[in-house]
């Protein structure tokens, strides 16, 4: 399984990661090797085997949908990279 630089570019775009051309080369090479190794899974007959998403056996853990008090507003605002008029400032979504 060999990934081209073009494919790496496409995945990086989906993942919102800017890559340098050197990184594209390196990832194409190393990720192809990892995907090659994963082929070993094709040796395993998994017909009629249920997939396991988690191991606890818990099902439908629910709770009341209640509003809880949160006193961290000030701390949360302090963590924001850019604040305008006490609110989070972000670049425009539409250009």
């Amino acid at each position: 399984m060999s990934l081209t630089n073009q494919e790496i570019k496409k995945i990086a775009q989906l993942a919102r990661l800017e890559l340098t051309p050197e990184e594209e080369n390196r990832y194409a090479e190393t990720i192809s090797a990892v995907l090659d190794y994963m082929k070993i899974l094709n040796e395993v007959d998994t017909e009629n085997i249920e997939p396991t998403a988690q191991v606890t056996g818990l099902k439908n853990v629910v709770r009341q949908d209640e509003i809880k008090k949160c006193s961290a507003n000030k701390q949360l605002i302090e963590q924001m990279p850019k604040v305008y008029a006490n609110e989070l400032s972000v670049p425009g979504v539409f250009e």
Binding site: E7, I11, A15, L19, I31
Partner: peptide, 16 residues
């Protein structure tokens, strides 16, 4: 760092 990016790329590919 490099390895975090690699895992994000592998995962994004595997789930695409």
């Amino acid at each position: 760092p490099e390895e975090v990016k690699r895992r994000i790329l592998i995962g994004t590919y595997a789930l695409s």
